[in-house]
Write a protein that binds this DNA or RNA. Structure first.
Lengths: 226, 226
DNA sequence: TCAGTCATGTTTACAGTGTTCACCATGACT
DNA sequence: AGTCATGGTGAACACTGTAAACATGACTGA
């Protein structure tokens, strides 16, 4: 028995194919019959392993969250709170640009399925992302970089801002090339940062901005990340 | 001929019913046969007036944009740039909370339909919203409230931030009651505002914040709107 | 060895979808 | 009176998600 594929549990084989199919055809093009063909089986067989289409896609959302978690986790390799913070912002962007369909899936699943409540599992995983942001903020508050007022809500501001920018871009509302968007993301990040930074850190950012303006074309793209 | 309804063009009757149906059943529940029943006609008849389902929904997106435009337009009644700016932020929020389905439709249409390009008409109308924000920002820059650097991108920051917050809330990711969310929106708005305000306006905001903290429960909910 | 059970598949079927086609009524204009 | 566009109909096609009934083959206990 050297063939790994036939060894894998049917549930996992289906999930793998479901991810492939979703990433290729998107939500609209995802049908149980197509999935079955890909798995090499007829459609009703899938119902032995997943209750229905919704549950299959729910599993795909889980995968999407796993991938996001890997990206975010990597940012913890940063050595200072400040660096971890900046890297987390980049990681979130990288995830969204590398896996746009996963990004959309994470946030639009309920909308797509026509549910008016987000399923428990999804809500939990989303909550984890929120906590991750919150931890990065708390660290920076303790390091004297960010204001301590409304600690809870600062994380939300950052999250919403990043999500909003990315979402508008992915929805095709911005109509700029990817590299340009990365710069806009970084720039916008700094603007928000100025609003939540302690006076000390804010004036530091200010200095970086002025230095950048002195040599406008050669300046660093992401001052906050340095 | 006193009956207005039978006088209206069939295209408009269909559009009206389509809006009703979409607002009631959402995207997932929107079918041509249901629409036909509502109009009082069989499904194929609809194709005399609209090329296909996509075009019908495109018309609904147009309606959604009209409603948004009305909300934004009202904010122009503000007497100073600063007030118009604050009112625009409120109007955007009001629209989203009053018509969540329209709000989602505006930004998720292409995603829902499985298109990878946003249709021309939608792109244009979205562009108009962006310009509206841009105008509010420009006014405030000229009035010495907002920094003049990166004028273009400041509008984007504001738009993305507002969109992100609202979108997360509507997707059920925030799990707070509406009134709480309104306060979070206002608070987050001020945080970003601090990052894009001129030093003079920023210190003014700072003063308001401190005043609010002096009497934490009785303070105004939206200092930026006053 | 044999009967039984369980996991996993298949075939068939149903109701619903978007859309097309061939056909038919009606009312306006030549 | 005849023509023609307008706006409707019913039947049909190729899909969809999903349920019910049935088949098969591996594993188990007697």
């Amino acid at each position: 028995m050297f063939t790994v594929f036939t060894m894998t549990e049917p549930r996992d084989r289906i999930l793998n194919c479901a991810c492939e199919l979703y990433l290729k055809d998107g939500f609209e093009g995802f049908s149980m019959r197509k999935l079955a063909r890909r798995v090499g089986v007829t459609a009703p067989a899938l119902y032995r392993h997943y209750e229905n289409r919704e549950k299959v896609l729910l599993a795909v959302v889980g995968q999407a969250h796993n991938v996001l978690a890997r990206y975010l986790y990597r940012s913890l390799a940063g050595e200072t709170p400040r660096e971890r913070f900046a890297r987390a912002g980049e990681a979130y962007l990288d995830f969204a640009l590398d896996h746009p369909r996963y990004f959309q899936m994470i946030y639009s699943f309920a909308e797509f399925m026509g549910l008016d409540e987000v399923p428990e599992e999804v809500a939990e995983e989303t909550c984890a992302v929120e906590r991750f942001w919150h931890d990065r903020v708390r660290e920076c508050v303790e390091a004297g970089l960010l204001r301590s007022h409304e600690l809870e809500e600062i994380g939300l501001s950052l999250w919403a801002h990043a999500y909003g920018l990315i979402s508008l871009y992915l929805h095709g509302m911005l109509d700029v090339p990817e590299e340009t968007f990365r710069q806009m993301y970084a720039g916008s990040f700094v603007r928000l940062l100025r609003g939540i930074a302690t006076p000390a850190y804010a004036s530091e950012l200010e200095a970086e901005l002025e230095a950048e303006e002195a040599l406008p074309d050669a300046g660093p793209v992401k001052p906050a990340a340095k």
